[in-house]
């Protein structure tokens, strides 16, 4: 059973993502609303994949990526969600070690494809 962490401060969106990923049987999906909760989860539990928004209260998605790569030192695949048109943030995310990137608005199927690809890799 795989475990996926989804963080975004938009409750409607993460609830939809959770629904989608559970429907496709990717495994257990944990949703959190901000960077602090995400870090808390990451410290106490292991995840097979992280999906995070860029703009969140307390800690941004970029800080979360840095946290996972540097502090925890693990290679959990990370997908970053972000609004269109902020190219430098995207490149920054990749530099910090994000594996994939989806720009909002996106199609639920696009997300599930990317999750599938990273989980099987």
């Amino acid at each position: 059973m795989k475990k996926i962490l989804v963080c975004d401060d938009d409750e409607a969106l993460i609830s939809m993502i959770r629904f989608k990923l559970s429907k496709e049987n990717y495994g257990e999906v944990v949703k959190v609303a901000d960077g602090r909760e995400a870090m808390h989860e990451l410290i106490y539990h292991d995840f097979d994949m992280i999906i995070t928004d860029i703009h969140m209260p307390y800690f941004s998605g970029l800080e979360l990526v840095t946290f996972v790569r540097e502090k925890l030192g693990d290679k959990t695949p990370i997908i970053v969600l972000s609004v269109e048109g902020i190219e430098n943030t995207v490149t920054e995310a990749f530099q910090l070690g994000a594996d994939d990137f989806i720009s909002k608005p996106f199609s639920p199927n696009e997300l599930s494809m990317r999750v599938k690809r990273l989980l099987s890799a």
Partner: peptide, 13 residues
């Protein structure tokens, strides 16, 4: 709720 989702989704959804 619908608007929140609509903002973030594209395509057929």
């Amino acid at each position: 709720r619908l608007i929140e989702l609509h903002k973030n989704l594209s395509g057929i959804s």
